[in-house]
């Protein structure tokens, strides 16, 4: 499935790039003026384009042939038949238009992806007017979601999976919304720019954990003498010690005052560092760091990430992992 999709995507792209660059730029500018980007778009007459489909032209030709037949056979009812087809065509234009107009598209969340995999874009289709919308086709970068109906529901979620290629922030092109409902004679469509973006993490590339990152004491942390994290032992009480640190249980047992000693851990110990990954090229470095971040996070060990100009303090948990991956994505 994915292979067929990528081919059609490439086809779509090459079709698009067939337009010369200035034409494309002007087209984009015109679109931006006419259909400004937003997070919530309600389709109205300014945004909807309309043109007959191939079938629509076939239908019109049929009406024309019947018109000629009606004239030549001097048959007013055949003539009327062709007038009916014409009128139905006009109604189809209005109905197809009406089927799209009032549709409300709301940008939802996106789910980040690793480069080369599919990013999930969540959208909502809703009604701004009390009418149904049928067979709405969403198309993005040449990929279509299956047609949607908004008949009883007020709002339905739509998830679009878009393949990603490069690391970074993925701003998809304009979303194309099409419908030929009810008669398939007219295509009504629009391109809307949704204020949506999706993070694309680097593609993880397997590599060895650099040796420097493995040094350290317990769990890779270097102990520091003073602190309150772990109990270290007892020593004789001194005048200046806080009463809170006196081991009162020992006192109760022995009558001697002892002070509990603790040590803490230095927070920076296990670091994934830019310079320490084997690859030469920046992108590959990022990919390897990405792999390492995932690897470390899977192991549950706290780690920090250091890139030129960016430093993330060590930590663990999904949130920390996410933060690291985002940093790699945006670097």
């Amino acid at each position: 499935m994915s292979s067929s999709m990528s081919t059609s995507s490439r086809a779509a792209e090459s079709r698009f790039s067939a337009l010369s660059r200035p034409v494309r730029a002007r087209w984009q500018r015109w679109l931006d003026r006419r259909i400004p980007p937003g997070r919530e778009v309600v389709l109205d007459q300014r945004r909807i384009f309309i043109f007959p489909t191939l079938m629509g032209f076939g239908y019109l030709f049929t009406a024309f042939l019947l018109f000629i037949a009606g004239i030549n056979y001097d048959n007013s009812l055949i003539l009327n038949f062709s007038f009916f087809l014409g009128s139905l065509f006009v109604v189809a234009i209005l109905q197809t238009f009406s089927n799209l107009s009032g549709l409300e598209i709301t940008a939802g969340t996106t789910e980040p992806a690793f480069a080369g995999t599919e990013a999930k874009f969540n959208l909502h289709l809703g009604k701004s007017r009390r009418k149904d919308h049928c067979s709405i086709l969403l198309e993005w970068h040449g990929f279509a979601a299956e047609p949607r109906n908004l008949i009883d529901a007020e709002k339905i979620p739509v998830q679009m999976l878009l393949p990603t290629r490069n690391r970074g922030v993925f701003h998809p092109e304009r979303l194309k919304i099409t419908s030929v409902y009810p008669l398939g004679l007219i295509r009504a469509w629009t391109w809307i720019a949704l204020d949506m973006e999706c993070l694309v993490y680097p593609k993880p590339v397997v590599c060895e954990l650099p040796p420097q990152a493995q040094q350290g004491g317990k769990d890779g942390k270097a102990p520091v003498p003073e602190g309150n994290e772990d109990f270290d032992g007892l020593r004789a009480y001194q005048e200046t010690d806080s009463l809170n640190t006196v081991d009162w249980k020992a006192y109760a047992r022995s009558g001697d005052l002892y002070t509990k000693r603790f040590h803490g851990y230095q927070a920076e110990s296990r670091w994934l560092q830019w310079d320490q990954v084997p690859a030469q090229y920046a992108e590959l470095k990022l990919s390897q760091l990405c792999f390492l971040v995932l690897d470390m996070a899977r192991g549950g060990t706290p780690f920090g990430l250091q890139l030129p100009g960016v430093k993330i303090e060590p930590g663990s948990g999904p949130e920390h992992q996410k933060r690291c991956l985002e940093t790699l994505a945006r670097f």
Partner: peptide, 25 residues
Amino acid sequence: TSDLLPADIIGTSIFNPGSSHFEFR
């Protein structure tokens, strides 16, 4: 401060040799 202990905030049970009981300070 970095060497502040939880007990420094919430208090500690101190052994009172007089009553031979722990008292919460």
